[in-house]
Amino acid sequence: MNEQALPRRNNEGFLESANEWTQAVAQVIASEDGIKLSEKHWEIIEFLREFYGKHEIAPPSNRLFVKAVREAFGQDKGNSIYLMQLFPGTPAKTACRIAGLPRPTNCL
């Protein structure tokens, strides 16, 4: 899949509709950030997709993203360093962008 074939996105690269997400879309968006998706990435992406399906909201801030991951997977993965290594920048924003979710509301 190339850039042109991606579903509609906003000016920060977030999908306009979470329903249009596919794994192929995730790979293209991740490559824009220089990320090659591994099993570890997919685990978090799938967690976020499930979280959004259940609560109709993405974790609104980076700290709440870390908190939610910690609740689900424990301290080993639910910490800033682990998530920062997988999703550089602001992990909640980077991960939500790749997972096709809306931009976290309280992230700068």
Binding site: F51, H55, E56, L64, K67, A68
Partner: peptide, 15 residues
């Protein structure tokens, strides 16, 4: 609109 019921179900996760 998004369901506030589902939004609120995230409240305990967030503390």
């Amino acid at each position: 609109q998004k369901s506030v019921e589902r939004n609120l179900s995230a409240a305990p996760v967030f503390g």
